[in-house]
Nucleic acid binder design. Structure first.
Length: 670
RNA sequence: UGGCCUAUGGUGUAAUUGGCAACACGUCUGGUUUUGGUCCAGAAGAGUCUAGGUUCGAGCCCUAGUAGGCCAACCA
């Protein structure tokens, strides 16, 4: 196998390094830790792909752990949905676990911390504590309860647990450093009183641990080796380590391995939102039909839309793993699903926007069943029979009375092939009172070997089956709907994100089952929606076929799929910056292009002031291109009447001595 | 008046200091085609945020800037 070694992403490199430094391979263990407060979305697919992917790569166990420490937001429904989604993606978790399983252990450790003077009960209002906490730029100050005695802390904490206090009366904090530059280290809260019913522990507890205190310790208890999360948790790492070091002191014999938190950039998709809170709002406000609405970026939505696990996994793999913020273009997602479906989806004919065609020389009442290939990409896919008769539907879009020769569909007098059937010629049209075409009259020829430019899909009217087709467009019309400080993301909702169409499909489709995926020939990929019944077919459009023809049609420009006009043009690059840029590559350019760039620089030079140019006189000797550009600009400035001063003279002298001929030549003209 | 992180074609990700920066998506040509799909062949597009420095040699190391992101929930 000449398999090229695929470069490792930075997380894999960390693991390889740990392994090289002596960590036994058996110690490798990962986890995916969702909070069950919403459905998983495409962004989670990346996180899932990373941790479970690493598990597959190193043959290491991966736990599915629900981070359920906030009874106010979490529900069993979400637990079930999350499990379904992860399983559907094709990943197998080692253990199904819950942070709430560790409540007792966490409590015992907290008591230990109090005894060691490393945690205390604070009894102020949240406002008072927030004030003492300071700001990112200002240090905090110690609160009045910071130095309570161990006995008092212990007593209070026990009574918190016993339910003697109301929510908000007391909290338990770690005693770290109120002046710490990292705000998370300024005595973070470990426990709050919450008299709420928990989906798993019921009413056993009325104090609940906070994320930082729970998450790391759960990793530790599970002996997770690498705890991978998204970038916004980077500042938490310091606290993660602090807590970890404390409990390690208490339990190192039982739990010898110290987990390591590392952070990667989360996935962002253009034209979509990825916040569970905002997604929930779409559901609650009934903008969409539910979490699994095919327009939603949720895993369940994509599943219902017709996406495959393979396509999603390919997508997150292609997207890569790194540490810088990113926005992935939806076109990549679309590419992945097309690539998969092209190989697997049976081809079928459906007409979404019909116009009637009558084949006048085809006998009335006659019908023929033509053999049709199910998938040209898959020889094993076999074939099926498709009925043909005197009256058929084709797409309105596929006929024009008159058209240029770039339009190779049907036009009056023109010929076109009907997929899997005959070649027809259009002779006449019948219109209604409004001038709308109601019928196209054609004649057919049995010679199918003839070469014709266009091939159309069609469906025999007599045999056609009616079906509901749901066509989706993006939910938001802005590239980054939730990144505007002055505008709410809801303002960018696309009013036409759902179009319901009554379509005619070939009769073989009556057999289609919920979830089945097809390619409607020449149109796109569609799957059978959950709403379909035995007498009412419903299809979702997963994604259209690539359409290089649509791009050429000017008509298409008012389409919502078009990029909206950029309102605020990005500020024009400063002329001096452009010149620097151009100068850089100057010496690498072929002669002809050099002349072009030179002209460009000379033009831009008119916008340059001496003050802008002056700093560039010191450009490093080796950056010849930049110096040539400077020389060119200087020439223009001198022409405009600039007086030579010592800086200018020095620059010219140095240029004249250079070993680069172009620079010398330019300097000589000055 | 802080701390941390990041900076490579339009987008995303590579490049184990050393041959004019690679791959994928997207874009554009051309060919094949009973899908304007697929497939095949090719092209354009960055000289690696800026300025210094170290080095024989820097996208990679150092310094200083600049730009963007994250951090002040009894959320996770």
């Amino acid at each position: 196998m000449s398999e090229e070694r695929k470069s490792l992403n930075f997380l894999e490199q960390i693991i390889e390094e740990d392994l090289a430094n002596g960590m036994p391979k058996e110690n490798l263990r990962f986890r995916f830790p969702p909070e069950p407060n919403g459905y998983l979305h495409i962004g989670h697919t990346k996180a899932i792909g990373i941790s479970f992917g690493l598990g597959e790569k190193y043959n290491a166990p991966v736990n599915l752990r629900f981070d359920d420490t906030n009874p106010a937001k979490e529900e069993q429904e979400y637990v079930d949905a999350i499990k379904e989604d992860v399983a559907w993606l094709g990943y197998k978790w080692d253990k199904e676990l819950y942070s709430s399983d560790y409540f007792q252990q966490l409590y015992d450790w907290a008591v230990q911390l109090i005894k060691d003077g490393k945690a205390y009960v604070d009894s102020q209002s949240s406002e008072a504590m927030a004030e003492q906490k300071g700001t990112p730029t200002q240090p905090g100050v110690d609160g009045p309860y910071r130095n309570r005695t161990v006995e008092e802390n212990l007593d209070l904490f026990e009574r918190m647990k016993a339910g003697e206090f109301n929510e908000g009366e007391h909290i338990l904090r770690a005693k770290i450093d109120m002046q710490h530059p990292n705000m998370l280290m300024r005595d973070p809260i470990m426990y709050r009183i919450l008299k709420k019913h928990h989906h798993r522990t019921g009413d056993d507890w009325c104090i609940y641990p906070m994320y930082d205190w729970t998450h790391g310790e759960s990793d530790y208890l599970e002996q997770v080796s690498h705890s991978l999360c998204s970038l916004e948790f980077k500042p938490h790492r310091e606290l993660y380590n602090w807590f970890k070091d404390q409990v390690y002191d208490y339990s190192k014999t039982e739990y010898p391995l110290l987990p390591k938190q590392r952070e990667f950039a989360r996935l962002n998709l253009s034209y979509t939102i990825m916040s569970k809170r905002k997604l929930l709002q779409l559901v609650n406000d009934k903008v969409v039909a539910g979490w699994d609405d095919p327009r939603m970026p949720t895993i369940s939505g994509l599943r219902r839309r017709g996406y495959t696990p393979a396509a999603l996994r390919k997508f997150v793999e292609t997207v890569g793993v790194a540490k810088r913020d990113n926005v992935i273009d939806v076109s990549l997602l679309e590419f992945c699903i097309r690539e998969d479906l092209n190989k697997t989806a049976p081809r079928v004919m459906a007409v979404l926007d019909p116009v009637k065609v009558v084949i006048t020389n085809y006998p009335e009442g006659k019908e023929e069943w033509f053999d049709s290939e199910n998938n040209p990409e898959d020889e094993t896919a076999g074939s099926r029979k498709v009925p043909f008769s005197r009256e058929i539907y084709i797409e309105k879009e596929d006929f024009k009375e008159e058209a240029g020769n770039k339009f190779f569909r049907l036009k009056l007098g023109g010929e076109v092939r009907l997929k899997n059937a005959y070649i027809i010629q259009a002779n006449d049209v019948i219109k209604d009172a409004n001038g709308e075409i109601t019928e196209i009259h054609c004649t057919y020829s049995e010679d199918t070997s003839k070469k014709v430019k266009g091939t159309l899909h069609w469906v025999s009217i007599k045999h056609a089956v009616k079906a509901e087709v749901r066509e989706y467009d993006r939910l938001f019309m802005d590239e980054a709907p939730d990144s505007h400080q002055d505008k709410d993301f809801m303002e960018f909702l696309n009013p036409d994100s759902l179009k319901i169409i009554e379509a005619y499909v070939e009769p073989s489709l009556v057999e289609a089952k919920v979830g089945d995926r097809f390619q409607f020939q020449r149109l796109g990929y569609f799957n059978v929606d959950n709403d379909a019944t035995s007498d009412h077919l419903v299809f979702n459009k997963t994604v259209g076929l690539r359409d290089t023809w649509a791009k050429q049609k000017p008509v298409n420009t008012q389409n919502t799929t078009q990029k909206p006009q950029q309102k605020n043009q990005p500020p024009k690059k400063k002329a001096i910056d452009v010149i620097q840029q151009l100068g850089k590559k100057y010496t690498n350019l072929p002669e002809a292009k050099q002349q072009k760039v030179k002209a460009e620089i000379l033009e831009l030079a008119k916008e340059i002031s001496y003050e802008e140019l002056q700093p560039l006189f010191n450009t490093a000797v080796k950056k010849v291109g930049t110096r040539i550009a400077v020389a060119l600009v200087l020439g223009v400035l001198l022409e405009q009447g600039l007086e030579k001063n010592t800086d200018v003279e020095e620059f010219i002298d140095k240029a004249l001595e250079d070993k680069n001929d172009i620079l010398v030549a330019e300097a000589q003209t000055l």
